[in-house]
């Protein structure tokens, strides 16, 4: 069970949280102008990276706030935690190719 550092509450057990998939997938501003391929890419296609992965978590049974986590999916080590709307720390971006 992971120990997740909620930026609002501190370290809490994984069972209090829900993982919300890959981070930094922005909803298109005008979906109607997109091709089916572009829409599908937004809807379904994911990085699913082995290694440092940027993901969203929500502290479901706590403050109910969403935030971002950079976690190595091979080792489960949490590398960084940062708030929604912020960019990942520079030390992380060098380890991940952003899409």
């Amino acid at each position: 069970m992971l120990l997740i550092p909620c930026p609002y509450c501190g370290e809490r057990e994984e069972s209090e949280f829900h993982q919300g998939g890959e981070a930094h997938i922005e909803r298109p501003k005008d979906p109607n102008k997109m091709t089916d391929e572009e829409w599908a890419d937004y809807l379904f296609f994911r990085d699913n990276r082995k290694g440092v992965y940027l993901e969203r978590w929500v502290h479901r049974h706590g403050c109910r706030r969403w935030f971002n986590v950079a976690r190595d999916t091979a080792t489960n080590q949490i590398v960084a935690v940062y708030k929604m709307g912020s960019k990942p720390p520079k030390s992380i971006t060098s380890r991940v190719t952003m899409k």
């Binding site: 919300g20 909803r27 969203r56 929500v58 479901r60 109910r64 706030r65 969403w66 929604m84 709307g85």
Partner: peptide, 12 residues
């Protein structure tokens, strides 16, 4: 949770 997700992550 769905409402919170959109409000917090997409339309803050």
């Amino acid at each position: 949770e769905w409402l919170e997700e959109w409000s917090q992550t997409e339309w803050p």
